[in-house]
Design a protein around this nucleic acid. Sequence first.
DNA 1: CGTTTGTTTTTTGTTGACAGTTTTCAGGTC
DNA 2: GACCTGAAAACTGTCAACAAAAAACAAACG
Lengths: 239, 239
Amino acid sequence: MDQPATQGPICALTLPQQIADHLGHRIMNGELPPGSRLKEEEFAETYTVSRGPVREAFRLLERRGFVEIVPRHGARVRVFDPADLAGLFSTRAVLFGLAARQAAERGAPAELIEQLASQVARLRHSAETMEISPSEHATIAGDSQHLIARFAANRPLLKMLEEMTSRALWRMAWRDTPLDFKTQARRRQSARFWSDLLKAIEAGDAAEAERIARALLEASRDHMIPAMASRRALSAAAE
Amino acid sequence: MDQPATQGPICALTLPQQIADHLGHRIMNGELPPGSRLKEEEFAETYTVSRGPVREAFRLLERRGFVEIVPRHGARVRVFDPADLAGLFSTRAVLFGLAARQAAERGAPAELIEQLASQVARLRHSAETMEISPSEHATIAGDSQHLIARFAANRPLLKMLEEMTSRALWRMAWRDTPLDFKTQARRRQSARFWSDLLKAIEAGDAAEAERIARALLEASRDHMIPAMASRRALSAAAE
DNA sequence: CGTTTGTTTTTTGTTGACAGTTTTCAGGTC
DNA sequence: GACCTGAAAACTGTCAACAAAAAACAAACG
């Protein structure tokens, strides 16, 4: 019996992927600061591999938005641009809006509604008790987004959203300090959005689902950008 | 004096890029049919280069959507899925909608309005006289989209739209036969959309600009999908 | 006759070395 | 002292060969 090719890589990760993952973490930790040059030979030594796999790892990191490669000048850690962060969020918002619309249009199956309801309950609990951390709240919200994106039955859209989630720009900004879901008011707003979105999808109201989904991420954008700015101002003052 | 890094590659293209471009054309021509396997050694010989550059060319083609790479199993020409085509168009539509919105919000400068007006005039002329080919009409429309995307001042969005334009899925479907802008009625519809869009951007009406821009690409989608389907039915019958 | 197992062949992954550019830096000039 | 000039170092691009994995094939088994 051949199982239906579970897409997810069961076998061990490729060498370049492992290197890319590790380098990605090092970049997010701030160990490799934005703008710093990444030399192939250097990382080939630290990971005790040849330059080839490192080279490919750089390309993977470029695709994920961590580094920038200029053909004959090598790779550099991408410098962070706050304006790009806002643009990225706006883009993600319309994409997620489309996902919600198409999920609602499709007439979401009971399975989705059930799972989504469970997530909404968790978000509500998070908002009322403030028991979990901001990043955990963000994780639940992120998983819910993925859930909806999967049910939109639009493979190019799904891939694009997944790629954006792994896109590092705002993760780089994140570092340790969470930028959103710190206050109870904000968590309540988030829970309300998700609750409304669930209702709209359940009712098959595509236009409303799109509107809410989009507003949801735009709210996230408008909360994170100022938080980011103040954090940057702080770190700049500390120097 | 150092000129401000004109982004566009003035220097000669990289070897992998050249190979990727050429292979891309061969795929679009149908010389390399969907599903066919691409062996590194084979193309290394035909291009009289080593396997390294060919390998990188495959990765570039993967990023452009031409091929699919499975880690230890090599590269294959991506098989065409009509459902994906529709999804791709819908996604592109909302992205372009956002671009139009942000361009309008920004208050487009005279330069943009002027260039756009010139393009609209050409589209109108195309619709009335039917002098140019469908693909030329499509090119003008595509350039106009790029124009608006550039003025949206959203770099992530611009990059994403550019990548989607080079994404091959519908180009592969295109081949020689154009799928849209064949009838005068359709060209008139196209010209009217662009004219309205120009007016909305000029007036700074962001919501209207988004609505039109989106409807514009959705119309394109709804015209091309049936054309594609019938074309495929024809080629299937020919076998 | 279909299935499975073991072997051969093909293909990808990785390595180390060489060639061509770019960057760096020292010396000379105005 | 700032700026240009040219050699040296460092780095990326490319290549050919080796190692490991996958695919194809053939023989044995139920």
